[in-house]
């Protein structure tokens, strides 16, 4: 009986990598895009560790360790950048950032707006009883 073949681990790594690629190309939330990139790295890590086992070579595991370290740095910086971008446009949508297009192209915009959530039914109100008090509007009060 042989152990689980190297081929199997490689297939799983490849599948995970591709899932991450599809997600990166598809999702529009900046953070989710980044997570998909991380998933690609994870697929690669699986590959590396499998090779390390089947070749008896520690280099694979060491490289995986470095991948973790680099992923951490990458996450830090990218989150910082995402925060700055968020502060600009108040949204995590990556499609808002199209300024590097050709000067005579129109920006690509969404055609269908999100369906507005149904208006919540108004809360029941009590009928007015008695007299309305005379209110003296105060300054600096914003209601």
């Amino acid at each position: 009986m042989t152990p689980v073949s190297l081929e199997s681990y490689l297939l799983v790594g490849a599948a995970l990598f591709t899932l991450g690629l599809v997600g990166f190309l598809t999702r529009r939330n900046l953070i989710i895009m980044f997570l998909c990139a991380e998933m690609m790295l994870q697929g690669v890590a699986i590959n590396l560790v499998a090779f390390a086992r089947y070749r008896g070579n520690m280099g694979g595991q060491v490289l995986t360790l470095f991948i973790i370290a680099v992923a951490a740095c990458e996450a830090a910086i990218s989150l910082a950048l995402i925060l700055v971008l968020f502060k600009r446009r108040k949204s995590l949508d990556v499609s808002l950032w199209q300024d590097l297009r050709e000067p005579d192209q129109d920006p690509i915009e969404d055609e269908e707006p999100l369906p507005t959530p149904p208006r919540a039914a108004p809360l029941p109100t009590l009928p007015v009883a008695g007299r309305e008090p005379v209110s003296v509007p105060k300054e600096n009060s914003h209601v």
């Binding site: 190309l25 598809t26 529009r28 939330n29 949204s91 995590l92 949508d93 990556v94 499609s95």
Partner: peptide, 11 residues
């Protein structure tokens, strides 16, 4: 869920 999450680009 925001506008961005609800869509995909070129699925």
């Amino acid at each position: 869920i925001s506008d961005a999450d609800a869509r995909t680009r070129e699925p």
